Amino acid sequence: MGRAKKVVLAYSGGVDTSVCIPYLMNEWGVEEVITLAADLGQGEELKPIQEKALRCGAVESLVEDATETFVKDYAFRAICANTLYENRYPLSTALARPLIAKLLVDAAEKYGADAVAHGCTGKGNDQVRFDVGIMALNPNLKVLAPAREWGMSREEAISYGEKFGIESPVKKSSPYSIDKNLLGRSVEAGPLEDPMTEPPEEVYEMTRAISDTPDEPEYVEIGFEQGIPVSLNGDLLGPVDLISQLNGLVGKHGIGRIDMIENRVVGIKSREIYETPALLVLIQAHRDLESLTLTADITQYKRGIEQTYGQLIYQGLWYSPLRQALDAFITQTQERVTGMIRIKLFKGNAVIVGRRSDNSIYTPDLATYGADDQFDHKAAEGFIYIWGLPTRVWSKSVNS
């Protein structure tokens, strides 16, 4: 029985999303499938993907270039929030999902579709991110997930597709599952499913092995305006160019690799390999600039906000009212986060070696131990007496 007549399908050109096209039409009675491939700066030529969708039976094949939107409206917000899921992963893949969900919903409205679809399985995080994001943007739109329900193995899916003229992979497919965009790459599956297996160099693309990195350090100066990165080494750059150039610069020095066991939304653990060279360094630099320009209570309180913000992104709740409320707090804190951070790149390490801001609240004549010291040392005694008074009273009561 058909669940919808016209469907917009998130399309990658892979086996699952290609098979989804004839499956939706022949098994679920869909009359028209429109595919949508999102260009988020992954560096792939999307014209062949667009043409493949038409060969697989799509009535229309859309390609949306949303790279700049991806950086400005998603990545930069995450940088301002210093988001690191489980204190390690800067959410390069997770951040793409709410944007793709929005593109699907917009296309469904434009073309009069009554449903959208994706090729996610039932074990991953992306099904949650797509489904929840779509229902937040348009709760009346149906969401179809054929690969979550068809019960076919990869081999069976290939055989099913061949019946409808979908060519099977010419060469043996990679054992890895890879997702890529401008912000980074995520790699899983195959031999990586054994937590004791060291990732082979073949899984990496954006970062060099330490043995192949330069033998001399390189310095980069990153400029921020109100929390947003705007320049590299004094050159003002657009959002996409800045991320792209910094990826190359940082990756050349072997910086940006993450190998972690993470907790998926659906309750299972997975072993993930990430490459996020620019994003990791930008968060590191941004957090350091905040330490120079924000008061102690704001930076300390903001850490809890950042953890919650990262969880919301990872768990598919980008369009939740809580994230929007947290944005208001974060945006206000960024008003003074303007300045420059100097970073030394060398052999897999990005070390902050300098920082400067016109909004700095670091006061040299109070911090110095030299002759210019303006701090009133005598005032410390009274401060300590008052500060420690509750502890002193408590100690007397328990030791009396």
Rank of each mutant, 00 (worst) to 15 (best):
G2Y: 11
G2Q: 09
R3N: 10
A10C: 13
G13H: 08
G13S: 05
S18R: 08
I21G: 06
Y23D: 04
M25C: 05
E31D: 15
V33I: 13
A38S: 15
Q42Y: 03
A53N: 11
R55Y: 01
T67Y: 02
I79W: 07
N82P: 02
L84G: 02
E86M: 12
R88M: 10
R97F: 03
L99H: 11
I100A: 12
A108Q: 06
A108E: 05
D114Y: 02
V116Q: 13
L137I: 00
N140V: 02
L144F: 08
A145C: 10
A147E: 15
M152H: 11
G161H: 12
F164I: 09
K172S: 09
S173K: 01
Y176W: 03
N181D: 15
P191K: 15
P199Q: 01
E205F: 03
I210Q: 06
D215A: 07
P217Q: 09
F224W: 01
S244Y: 10
G248T: 04
K252W: 06
I255F: 13
R257W: 00
I268H: 01
P277I: 00
Q284H: 00
L294M: 13
A296C: 00
I298F: 03
Q300L: 14
Y314C: 01
L322R: 14
L326H: 13
L326S: 10
I341A: 07
I352D: 13
R356Y: 14
D365Y: 04
A367W: 01
T368M: 12
T368R: 13
A379F: 06
K396G: 03
N399L: 09
